Amino acid sequence: MKKSIVLIALAVSIISCNQKAADVKEIKTAYVDTSKLMEEYTEAKDLEAKYKAKSEEMGRELEAEINKFKAEASNFQRNAQANGQAWAQQKGAELSKREQQLSYAQEAMLRQLRQEQGVEADSMVSKVKKFIKDYGKKNGYAYVFGTGEAVSILYAEEKYDITKDVTKLLNDQYKSEGKKEEGDVKAEAKKELEAIEKKK
């Protein structure tokens, strides 16, 4: 009698474990390599290119001002003795002030570019997260994990990697939304440069 009770308990335990294992197997999971996604996502590439071009454009104008300053500083050193101490002190103070202004302008430009790029990047990341959430729901996933720089998964079979699918769909969606014309980007960069010039 005791043997049959133990066998029944053991059988119930095994059936219960098998039931739990079956329940676990039904959970559908996947992962996205977020670093790879951002490397291959067209909008991310366009955003990087936009701010690289904007930085170069703004940098060229600032560099022209810096070169002008260097030429004046060189002339100052050559003419300092010839024009006397009073002139040298006055001109030295002016050059020092201009150098400081150029430094502030460079810092302001970098800060502005970082801030603008940060806002657009945050918006893009939010859009990607929403897309992945919708993709997960639509395709019946209980979990979609992210891997990349901030690893949140230590192992996954490659068959659960949906990075390519998500990247392709995001790129298709981005293309259908319509990209900004390159001329618009240049016009924006030019406006920014003009704004910096007016501040001087």
Rank of each mutant, 00 (worst) to 15 (best):
A156E: 07
G146H: 00
V151T: 11
L169S: 02
K168M: 10
A121N: 14
L10K: 03
R78N: 14
E63L: 08
Q81I: 08
F69G: 04
K130M: 05
V32Y: 09
K2H: 10
R60F: 05
K68L: 08
D172N: 12
E65H: 02
L193R: 11
K130A: 14
K133S: 13
K52R: 07
L154A: 12
A64F: 05
F76G: 08
E99L: 03
E48M: 06
K168A: 14
V12I: 15
F69Y: 15
A150M: 05
Y160E: 05
S13Q: 02
Y104R: 09
G148M: 05
N75P: 00
G148P: 04
E39L: 12
S16G: 15
S74H: 09
E94W: 09
T42V: 13
I132H: 11
E63I: 01
K127F: 06
A86R: 12
K191G: 07
Q81D: 13
L10V: 13
L47Q: 05
E48V: 05
L193P: 00
N67R: 10
Q89H: 01
R98K: 15
I196S: 13
A64H: 08
L102M: 06
G183W: 00
A88T: 04
K199I: 06
R78D: 13
N75M: 03
L110V: 02
A86Q: 15
Y141T: 03
K198W: 03
K25H: 07
T147Q: 06
Y41P: 10
A30Y: 04
T163M: 08
K130N: 13
I27Q: 12
S152T: 02
E107R: 08
A86F: 08
I162N: 02
E26C: 04
A11T: 12
I132N: 11
G178E: 06
K179N: 09
E194M: 04
G92C: 06
E182L: 12
A121E: 14
N18E: 10
K180S: 03
E182S: 14
T42Q: 15
N18D: 07
A105L: 15
M109R: 13
S96I: 01
Q117K: 13
I66H: 02
K179R: 14
A150K: 08
A30C: 01
A9F: 13
E57D: 02
Q106H: 03
D46I: 04
M1W: 05
R78Q: 15
Y104Q: 13
K52W: 00
S152I: 00
G148V: 04
S55G: 04
F131K: 02
G84N: 14
S126R: 06
M109G: 11
D184P: 00
R60P: 00
K138W: 02
